[in-house]
Amino acid sequence: NTKMVRFKKGDSVGLRLAGGNDVGIFVAGIQEGTSAEQEGLQEGDQILKVNTQDFRGLVREDAVLYLLEIPKGEMVTILAQSRADVYRDILACGR
């Protein structure tokens, strides 16, 4: 149940992230009207890879910085997997 989305970065990627470290990086929110939303990313999706950067094992701050450093107008390719069950557990633990 993995999906790959590809879009051109606007002012931002339009994602709020949660998790990090051993639990993985998850989409915690999506800005309305962004390409990330239009391409089908959803809250609870685990981000496995962005462009050439493996997101598994990253701390959340490093994942956020990586997304911020992608220049506006560059193509962004995100490999994600729907993991809403794991995401709910992360929220319940306050991570």
Rank of each mutant, 00 (worst) to 15 (best):
N1F: 09
T2E: 06
K3I: 01
V5K: 07
V5Y: 05
R6G: 00
F7N: 00
F7M: 03
K8W: 08
D11C: 06
D11I: 05
S12G: 11
S12L: 07
V13H: 05
V13Y: 09
L15P: 00
L15H: 05
L15F: 15
A18M: 13
A18T: 12
A18G: 07
G19M: 02
N21A: 15
N21W: 13
N21Y: 11
F26C: 03
A28G: 07
A28C: 09
G29Q: 09
G29V: 01
I30A: 02
I30C: 05
Q31H: 09
Q31L: 10
E32A: 12
G33I: 09
G33Y: 06
T34C: 15
S35E: 15
A36K: 05
E37T: 07
Q38V: 14
Q38G: 13
E39T: 15
G40N: 09
L41Y: 00
L41A: 00
Q42K: 13
E43P: 10
G44R: 01
G44C: 00
D45V: 01
Q46E: 13
Q46T: 07
Q46M: 14
I47N: 00
L48Q: 01
K49T: 08
V50E: 00
V50Y: 00
V50K: 03
V50H: 01
V50C: 03
V50S: 01
Q53H: 06
D54P: 05
L58V: 08
L58T: 01
L58A: 06
L58S: 03
V59N: 15
E61Q: 09
E61S: 08
E61K: 08
V64S: 12
L67H: 02
L67G: 02
L67R: 07
L68Y: 09
L68T: 15
I70E: 03
I70W: 06
K72A: 08
K72S: 03
K72P: 11
G73K: 04
G73D: 02
V76W: 02
T77A: 04
I78Y: 00
L79N: 04
L79M: 11
A80S: 03
A80C: 11
Q81G: 05
R83I: 02
R83F: 05
A84V: 13
A84T: 13
A84I: 14
D85R: 09
D85S: 11
V86W: 09
V86C: 10
Y87P: 11
R88D: 12
R88P: 12
I90Q: 13
L91D: 10
L91Q: 13
A92P: 11
C93K: 14
G94H: 12
